[in-house]
Amino acid sequence: MSRRLAQGFVPEPPPGTPVVIALGANLGDRDGTLDAAAAELRALPLTDRVRVAEPISSIAIKPDGPDAAAPRYLNSVATLRTRLAPSVLLAALHEIEARHGRVRAERWGDRTLDLDIIAYGAVLSADPALTLPHPRAAERSFVLAPWLALDPDAELPGAGPVRALLDRLGEDG
């Protein structure tokens, strides 16, 4: 045993930024797609500590609001640490979506897989290519509830504790 370990030295965790990613699907084999997407997140370079919440079911949200006629979503959240830049991570997520048949035909349309960066550390960005944190995360119980299940102390940058945000939404969130 090395002398440093014998003296109680604990190696520092690998560097990286904590990231929260929302996963959703309402077409095809939703369970299988979310499982495969989680495996692909675990395989991303310079990324570790991937944890994925148990999926929950939710009504589809369209530009005009909830749509009970559309197929229901299966949603989850993954937390991880990465050394990938936000734009590189976003490109990797788009590649994963494409491998699972994601077609971007209409805004908020039905999809085989949706991967959104909800938070990238404490980064605040109004860049239209990648707004951080996700601009509607605080309004989405299907994002907040699985995130809270993974991290009871989670905070959405610029908005506050996830628990308080979820409480404000109530049961209709």
Rank of each mutant, 00 (worst) to 15 (best):
L144N: 04
D64M: 09
A91H: 10
R42I: 08
D31K: 13
D172I: 10
V123Q: 14
P133Y: 10
D153Y: 11
I59G: 11
S58A: 12
E12M: 08
Y73F: 15
D172N: 13
E54C: 07
R136P: 06
A138E: 09
V10M: 09
A78R: 00
A43Y: 03
R107L: 13
L89N: 03
A129Y: 10
D35N: 14
I21D: 03
A105M: 08
L148W: 05
G101V: 09
V20G: 06
I59M: 14
P14C: 09
R3C: 07
V77D: 06
P135T: 06
A69I: 08
R107M: 10
Y120H: 03
S125F: 07
A137Q: 08
S58G: 07
A122S: 13
S125Q: 12
W147E: 01
P63S: 04
R3E: 13
E95C: 09
A159V: 03
G173M: 02
S58V: 06
L169V: 01
S125Y: 10
I59R: 15
V20Q: 05
Y120M: 00
A60E: 13
P11H: 02
P55R: 05
I118Y: 05
R168W: 09
V88E: 12
V19Y: 00
A119L: 04
Y73D: 01
I59N: 07
E155V: 15
A159L: 05
H100V: 05
A164C: 06
P133I: 08
P45W: 04
G32K: 03
V143Y: 11
P66I: 00
T33N: 00
P63Q: 03
H94G: 05
P45D: 09
A78M: 01
S58P: 06
V143N: 09
D127A: 14
L169P: 00
A164W: 04
T33Y: 00
L34A: 03
A129F: 08
T112G: 04
P18W: 04
A138Y: 08
E12I: 05
P55Q: 04
S2F: 11
S125W: 08
A22L: 01
L80C: 07
D35T: 14
R81V: 11
R104N: 12
R163D: 13
D153G: 14
R168H: 10
L115P: 07
T131K: 13
D64L: 13
E12R: 10
L113T: 02
